[in-house]
Design a protein around this nucleic acid. Structure first.
Length: 626
RNA sequence: GCUGGAGUAGCUCAAUCGGUAGAGCAGCUGAUUUGUAAUCAGCAGGUUGCGGGUUCGAGUCCCAUCUCCAGCUCCA
């Protein structure tokens, strides 16, 4: 008997509190001294335990991890030859990788899911066992599970014992914790099957990965599945075709976007907004060439660190690199004359079209292309200006995201394996970024080893209407390129000093951002960026001239308008405009013609009669102030 | 790049065991002049991604290649 505290309540227990909490079935695991443990784990005198609720982030991860064991048990029963490897929880579910000669078919998944239901129904307990390293090796060698043996062999030298979890007939090497029994895994679904490399290394054997998801309740699962349906409807590749925004052509090549008139208009509107914004924020607009001499890419370090992503061409027997980034011409502009400390900061902005050799399998609609346009800028500043410049960029990100209606989170990515420059430089640059974030009082996470090869970065992840995250803005602090290009400014002391460089994008790639915008708004863009803002539609030919006049007046006032003068019923015209997600439909019949008005129908179906001038005002007021 | 799956009319899809490639929508022509999510009729539309092969005969089977999709690895 020991006296312990559970969720702030003092209780007396014998070994573990499992029996006490299992009744309510809300708790799936517990935390003791900050460590997640099973509810069955024994408690020592005076220990403080917090139960982990099934709805919490950790609780959900534990349910999913346990679901992966339930699935593995089902797979082992149905396909005894499948060798289990690893099966963790993920952001939206879990997976388990098996080494199995052939791939699993959709029918196999159905069978596995059925078997899982049986296992869940049987409410089999998860039984934890601690065994010595040697014993574990012996067990998995005898079971003929080489992957488990490999994992145990790769454990650090100091590790003497490991934990095993037994669920029915399935014994797995696993750190845990797990839910008390398989009955806790009650809302799950197998999603898909795909190949995955052992340990994520493409040199290793390809395994069969089965993806599934699990939730605390059937209701949550259903919500998630509905969300997936919604995401499918919003798929920017589908909407891009339906709304005639952009296309890809097998003839042109993969990953190469072709903007159609409506997509071209959308992009151009975003570009205009950005140009005005940057000008107001003290940036200068510049343009650099698409190809630059190979020598320049050697100096920058791209030849050593980025070569496999670059395309090269030859002109007059000289190698030229097609730019994957815009920084080089901006550095050349900086170097074009002697800079005084009074000139800094210098902010060069370029809507720069870059080309990167992305591996064929990663290309994905607008979200991952081989050629894209960045709203890129490079800021050259004095070290004492660095924090202010970074915070100004952070503010700018906030302003732009508010205009488009996105919320976001931030993370700081640190020095990657393939990088250049000294550790001291990296520390200094990383500190500048975190200092700026802390000065703003903004929360951030650390993303170890994910920086650019020339410097650490703040990555901004925006969240769309259905909760998915996308990386768009990034702010990179660079002490390397200024040194490699030996750029400097003359200080107040008359001496040469080295400026710091910030690389930053706000929207990131216009292609990706537009893709995210399409999915965020499901194609129903805000009025100010809608490629077509209004469709004028006459009811019969009798109002044709009047409607044409309205159209001409709107166009003269810079309203993006189309006139649907076809000999079709009004219901048909409205249907088409709705499918095209046009913000306003201007219906014109005899009534409007007589009264000199238009009936404005918005996307919500609300109708209101007004004059053409009033409508123009309404459209103009939707323009964000820049 | 790797693994698995798929490519049929502009789009969405059909075509049984290898036996004459079809439908709806869109398009064109005509009729209809219409008040808030599809008016009617007719016409046209294809070297089944591309290239080989097997076969009396291939959309269907085999090989190769391109593109797309789901993942892996990588990223704005």
């Amino acid at each position: 008997m020991s006296q312990v505290t559970v969720d702030g309540r003092a209780i007396t227990t014998e070994g573990s509190i499992l029996k006490d909490v299992i009744k309510n079935r809300r708790a799936v695991a517990a935390r003791v001294d900050g460590v997640l443990v099973d509810l069955s784990s024994p408690l020592k005198e005076g220990q403080v335990m917090e139960t982990v609720d099934m709805d919490s982030k950790e609780g959900l991860a534990i349910i999913r991890h346990s679901a992966s064991h339930v699935m593995a048990e089902a797979v082992k029963q149905l396909f005894p030859g499948a060798k289990p490897t690893i099966g963790p929880s993920t952001e939206d579910g879990y997976y388990y990788d098996f080494d199995y000669g052939q791939s699993f078919s959709p029918e196999d998944l159905e069978k596995i899911e059925k078997k899982m239901e049986e296992i869940a129904k049987e409410d089999q307990p998860f039984v934890r066992r601690e065994v010595s390293r040697e014993e574990a090796l012996d067990i998995f060698t005898k079971k003929g599970e080489p992957y488990k043996v490999e994992i145990i062999n790769d454990l650090p030298a100091g590790v003497e014992s490991v934990s095993l979890y037994e669920l029915g007939s399935f014994l797995d090497l696993c750190r845990g914790p797990h839910v008390p029994s398989s009955g806790f895994v009650k809302a799950f679904k197998l999603m898909s099957v795909a190949g995955a490399y052992w340990r994520g290394d493409e040199k290793n054997k390809m395994l069969q990965r089965i993806y599934g998801t699990a939730f605390a309740s059937p209701k949550d699962l259903k919500e998630y599945l509905t969300l997936l349906e919604e995401a499918k409807k919003r798929d920017h590749r589908k909407l891009g075709r339906e709304l005639e925004l952009f296309m890809f052509s097998e003839d042109a090549g993969p990953g190469l976007v072709i903007y159609m008139p409506k997509g071209g208009m959308l992009r151009s509107l975003i570009e205009e907004f950005e140009k005005k914004l940057h000008f107001r924020k003290g940036y200068d607009i510049v343009y650099g060439p698409a190809i630059l001499r190979g020598r320049l890419w050697e100096i920058s370090g791209h030849m050593d660190n980025y070569r496999e992503n670059m395309y090269f061409t030859e002109l007059d027997e000289q190698v030229y690199g097609i730019k994957p980034m815009n920084c080089l011409s901006h550095i050349l502009i900086y170097k074009s004359k002697v800079r005084s400390y009074r000139d800094l900061p210098l902010r060069y902005f370029e809507l720069g079209n870059v080309t990167r050799n992305e591996k064929s399998g990663v290309i994905h609609g607008l979200l991952r292309t081989r050629q894209f346009t960045q709203d890129d800028a490079h800021i050259f500043c004095r070290p004492d200006q660095l924090i202010d410049e970074i915070t100004a960029i952070i503010d700018m990100v906030a302003e732009v995201m508010a205009v488009f209606g996105f919320t976001y989170s931030m993370e700081v990515s640190t020095r990657p394996e393939q990088s250049m420059g000294s550790v001291e430089m990296w520390d200094l640059a990383t500190k500048a970024l975190t200092d700026a974030l802390e000065k703003k009082g903004l929360p951030y996470e650390i993303n170890e080893g994910d920086g650019a090869f020339y410097g650490p970065k703040i990555d901004v992840k925006i969240k769309d209407a259905i909760g998915r995250e996308w990386q768009c803005a990034t702010i990179q602090c660079d002490f390397n390129l200024p040194e490699r290009f030996d750029i400097h400014y003359v200080g107040a002391d008359g001496e040469k000093h080295r400026p710091v460089m910030l690389h930053r994008v706000i929207l990131g790639s216009l292609e990706r951002f537009i893709g995210v915008l399409i999915e965020h708004f499901a194609g129903a863009f805000p009025v100010w960026i809608a490629p077509v803002q209004a469709v004028v539609m006459n009811i019969t030919d009798a109002q044709g001239d009047y409607a044409a006049g309205v159209t001409a007046k709107l166009r003269a006032s810079d309203v993006r308008v189309e006139f649907d003068s076809r000999n079709e019923k009004i219901g048909f015209k409205i249907r088409e405009a709705r499918l095209q997600k046009v913000p306003y439909m201007l219906v014109i019949g005899d009534r409007e013609k007589e009264e000199g008005t238009v009936t404005v129908r918005d996307r919500g179906g609300e109708q209101k009669a007004m004059t053409t001038d009033e409508f123009i005002q309404m459209v103009k007021s939707a323009q964000p102030a820049v």
